[in-house]
């Protein structure tokens, strides 16, 4: 009973905070887009937007992980066209990236299909893009392809790349968040991505994530391998 009560409080608080964030986000949008507004430093508004989006994806991650721990998370795997899906993901982060002077794009074979829970994977990608925004110099690119019987979705940037301590270490993926991996890239994000990837199974294959540097772009490359 204690657990249930706490879960209710948690869920409804997060629901409320997320509603507020939604309102802040759309007001900020109006503020920036409206040419009648003269902001001394428009970049400040954009940074606000960026942080609000990050706070929002953190909340989603927290709640999802909480549910996962309490076996309340339902995974709904559906067939998704990757071109359509990535177009939406890019659209969702586009205005913030533009404001931060970053070019956000996607490319993949228009007929590429994949099976995954679109909402959960969207959560992973939103937060990964949120992180990439902090490190990219000018560009963030999303792409997808089929490799070795897996669907691989990549988020790449042209920044200085992941620290050596992170690349490779995630292969095999960690089961728990690690203290020693303290860096600018949040652990919560990587832990969340790992858990969500692992929820995707097909036959004896399980999803995973991988970090590397210098794939299409010269900076960090986050890879989501989905069976």
């Amino acid at each position: 009973m204690d657990n249930m009560d706490f879960s209710d409080i948690l869920a409804s608080s997060i629901h409320d905070i997320k509603n507020s964030l939604g309102l802040i986000l759309s007001s900020l949008d109006d503020l920036i887009v409206n040419p009648d507004n003269h902001l001394a430093d428009p970049r400040q508004a954009s940074l606000l937007q960026h942080e609000v989006q990050r706070a929002n994806s953190n909340l989603i991650q927290l709640l999802t992980l909480y549910k996962l721990g309490h076996e309340q998370l339902t995974v709904r795997v559906t067939d998704n066209n990757l071109d359509d899906f990535l177009e939406e993901v890019v659209a969702n982060s586009q205005s913030v990236c533009k404001a931060l002077d970053l070019e956000l794009s996607h490319h993949c074979d228009p007929s590429l299909d994949g099976y995954f829970d679109a909402e959960l994977i969207r959560g992973v990608l939103d937060s990964t893009i949120g992180n990439a925004r902090r490190y990219a110099r000018r560009r963030i690119e999303l792409n997808a392809s089929r490799e070795d019987g897996f669907l691989v979705i990549r988020v790449e940037d042209d920044g200085s790349g992941f620290p050596a301590a992170l690349t490779g270490l995630l292969d095999p993926p960690p089961g728990e968040p690690r203290d020693e991996l303290n860096s600018g890239r949040t652990q919560l994000g990587l832990y969340f991505a790992t858990r969500i990837a692992q929820l995707h199974r097909n036959g004896d294959k399980t999803g995973r994530i991988r970090l590397r540097n210098g794939h299409h772009l010269e900076g960090g490359c986050f890879e989501l391998w989905l069976p």
Partner: peptide, 18 residues
Amino acid sequence: SYLAKPFTKDLLRTRLGK
């Protein structure tokens, strides 16, 4: 379609278009 809150203008535009 389902739309998770909060969503941006760009996401709604893309979704509706599709």
